[in-house]
Structure formats: structure tokens, C-alpha cells
């Protein structure tokens, strides 16, 4: 039983990977926006100091890695809409696999893609002046994976909510971008007006990005363990919510 579940998850993950390899150009083009943020904000705000981090590119890079993750994993969650549109969701729906396996497979695929995306950002930002703690790269993995799980779950939830592609732009403009700007990714949330501060503290991306800064820069608002626990809680909650939503699709 256990091994069958794992096998099903593996098969569904493998499909995501095949699709990922097939659409390398899509992978590269989805890196374009975070890279532009990195380059233009990084050079435009050169010399700005936040949280006592002397170089702005150091401060910015973990935030942009978080940006790459939130976008790629929300898209992955929303991509069930494509599967439904092309009928493929039915092939999976009548296969002898549980919904748990289907959701885990999707999340596993999405997390893998997100790790690649975040790593690409971290590596490409080194020539731009980013100098992370070397152990930090490995230590950043749990944060990246937990963010990916959280936002894939959120993507599934919104897929069930909007039901077709028309709502896609709404999710990006009114959910993902606000979450990104209120996460402390490009400036510390302490600079925000105090009315929106509570919202920022409910934002899973805040803990992810703060955790990345903790391990990559040894500089963060909250201790790393706290960010990790918060990210874990968010990922569990959103996966449960996302799985419930997926059942209704």
C-alpha cells in the first residue's frame, strides 16, 4: 500500500519533469521577470541599506528567489486548470491512484521546479555582486521547498475558486503581486504603514524570505527556526485547503 502510494507519486512527478524538460524555453522565460527585478532594482537602489545589510543586492536576492518560487509554484497549482481543459484530469481521475497521491505528485513536481528556479536566481545573482554564506545555499533548500508546497496548495485552491482561465490575471494581480510586495522581499516590512503590517505577518512569503535571509545573510527579522516552523505550518494548512479544493474540481 505504502509503496504503491510512493510509486503513484513518483509517476506523477515524472510527468511534471518530462514536461519541464520539454519546455526549457518556458523555464527560462519564467526566470526573466525575477531577473529583471534583480537587475533593475538591484542597480537602481544600489547603496540603499536595509536591516543593516550594507549591499542592497545582498538584501534583494533572497527576496527575488522567493519571488521566483511564489510565481512558479502558484502557476503549477493553477495548471490543473489546463489539465482539466485538455481532459487529462479525467485520465488521472479514473486511474487507480488516490487523490493524496495526485496532489503529492503535483507538489513534488512543483517543488522540484521551484528549487531549480530559486537556485538559478541565487547563482545568477553572484556576478551581480551577491555574496551569500556558502553553507547558506544548502540551508536555504528547506525554505524553498516549504514555500513551493505552500504556494502550490494556494494555486490549487485558487484554481478551484476561479474555475477557468479568465480569473488567472485576477489571481496574479490581486493575490500574488500584493503578497510579493508585502513580504519584505524588496524592502523590509517595517517600512510599511502600520495598518497593513498585520497582513504582512500573515503572509507565508514573509517567513520564507526572512528564513532565506537568515541562512544566506545571517541577517533576519526573526530567528531562522521561527521562520522554519511558521513556513511548515503554512505549508500544512495550504496543502489541506488545496487538497479539499482539488476534490471539488
Amino acid at each position: 500500500m505504502e509503496s504503491k502510494l510512493l510509486l503513484s507519486i513518483y509517476v506523477l512527478w515524472l510527468r511534471e519533469m518530462k514536461r519541464l524538460i520539454r519546455s526549457k524555453s518556458r523555464f527560462v522565460s519564467s526566470l526573466a521577470m525575477p531577473l529583471m527585478f534583480l537587475i533593475f532594482l538591484g542597480s537602481g537602489f544600489k547603496g540603499v541599506q536595509f536591516q543593516g545589510v550594507t549591499s542592497y543586492i545582498d538584501f534583494l536576492t533572497p527576496g527575488i528567489a522567493g519571488m521566483a518560487v511564489i510565481f512558479s509554484s502558484t502557476f503549477a497549482g493553477l495548471s490543473v486548470l489546463w489539465d482539466r481543459e485538455f481532459g487529462f484530469l479525467k485520465e488521472i481521475a479514473v486511474a487507480p491512484v488516490s487523490n493524496v497521491a495526485v496532489i503529492c505528485g503535483r507538489i513534488a513536481g512543483s517543488a522540484t521546479t521551484s528549487v531549480f528556479q530559486a537556485m538559478a536566481i541565487l547563482i545568477l545573482s553572484v556576478p551581480l555582486g551577491f555574496s551569500p554564506a556558502t553553507t547558506g545555499i544548502v540551508a536555504s533548500l528547506p525554505f524553498i521547498v516549504l514555500m513551493a508546497i505552500t504556494f502550490t496548495g494556494m494555486g490549487l485552491f485558487f484554481a478551484a475558486l476561479i474555475r477557468d482561465f479568465h480569473g488567472f490575471g485576477l489571481v496574479i494581480n490581486f493575490v500574488i503581486f500584493p503578497l510579493f510586495f508585502l513580504s519584505g522581499a524588496v524592502f523590509p516590512i517595517s517600512n510599511l504603514p502600520s495598518v497593513v503590517l498585520p497582513v504582512a505577518y500573515l503572509n507565508p512569503l514573509f517567513y520564507g524570505v526572512d528564513g532565506l535571509r537568515a541562512v544566506l545573510l545571517k541577517n533576519s527579522v526573526l530567528p531562522a527556526w521561527f521562520d522554519l516552523v511558521a513556513s511548515l505550518i503554512f505549508s500544512v494548512v495550504t496543502v489541506i485547503v488545496g487538497a479539499k479544493a482539488f476534490d471539488r474540481l
Binding site: 510527468r15 518530462k18 514536461r19 520539454r22 519546455s23 489539465d83 485538455f86 481532459g87 487529462f88 484530469l89 479525467k90 485520465e91
Partner: peptide
């Protein structure tokens, strides 16, 4: 009734 294939594979 409707095809249920992964068109990108």
C-alpha cells in the same frame, strides 16, 4: 467522450 491525453507528451 472528449480526449483525455497529455498533449505536451
Amino acid at each position: 467522450q472528449e480526449p483525455a491525453l497529455d498533449t505536451r507528451l
